[in-house]
């Protein structure tokens, strides 16, 4: 279980997140929906330890408190972020990026098997192993970023707008792979503006507005909610 409660983040005087609480079960896809500037990226960055959280914030993963850990310790605990802009090492090869994904001590055992699984999942990466990461297309880079996160053997991956800048058909195949990843036991916290595609693969979703949670429910409930349909699905 990933349990987040009373999460607040402030950048100077600007309050980006206020008292946010979310829960995700193992192997579950939880979507965080909201418009630009709602605080979605701040939420993931805070969970990954990239921005400071307020003192009241509590984040636990499998019962272990990870609220005060530094970024590398959070990966070690089982939470892997694929940041906005993907955070790849552009001058390093695809193979080196994947190898670095398994730098965490928790990921050393079974590394070869995991690499084989990731390459099966994203066959393009297999073809391009020796290529420098920054010379690949946006879709391929996104696959590499997700593959690299999976190499750390995470309990949950945090995905920040994976569909951004991708062609609809690429997004579609990417989202179906996300479904497979969750089905194999790795939970996903999915931050997206693409509400429709997200609700299709998610079990639960939270609605974020101006740094607060303003609604939540199962994906089916939210898809059927007239207010959500108006505001997020454009129906």
């Amino acid at each position: 279980m990933l349990e987040v409660s009373a999460l607040s983040v402030a950048y100077g005087k600007h309050q980006a997140l206020r008292d946010v609480s979310i829960v995700a079960a193992p192997g579950e896809i939880v979507a965080i929906l909201g418009s630009n500037g709602a605080g979605k990226s701040s939420l993931l960055k805070a969970l990954a330890g990239l921005v400071p959280k307020s003192r009241e914030t509590s984040v636990t993963l499998g019962g272990k408190d990870i609220s005060r850990l530094r970024p590398h310790e959070i990966v070690e605990a089982g939470l892997a972020l694929v940041p906005e802009g993907r955070g790849l090492f552009g001058d390093l090869s695809v193979a080196e990026n994947l190898q670095l994904g398994a730098f965490a001590k928790r990921a050393r055992q079974g590394e070869a098997d995991r690499l084989a699984r990731v390459l099966d999942m994203f066959p393009r990466l297999k073809e391009r192993r020796a290529q420098m990461a920054r010379t690949m297309s946006g879709g391929e880079q996104q696959m590499l970023a997700i593959g690299r996160a999976l190499m750390s053997s995470p309990d949950f991956v945090l995905l920040d707008e994976p569909s951004l800048g991708l062609a609809p058909v690429v997004t579609q195949s990417l989202f179906s792979i996300l479904g497979d990843i969750a089905a194999a036991g790795t939970g996903i916290i999915l931050v997206e503006q693409n509400t429709r595609a997200s609700l299709r693969i998610a079990q639960h979703a939270y609605l974020l507005e101006n740094g607060r949670i303003v609604g939540q429910g199962t994906a089916a409930e939210l898809s059927a909610d007239p207010a959500v349909q108006r505001a997020y699905l454009g129906l």
Binding site: P71, V75, E76, L88, F89, G90, L92, E96, A107, S152
Partner: peptide, 24 residues
Amino acid sequence: TRTGVALRAVAVDPIAAGLVAVDV
């Protein structure tokens, strides 16, 4: 070596290096 690649990763992007469990 793994440690060597980790050092180069920090040179390229220290924030991303933290996200792959490298203690920067």
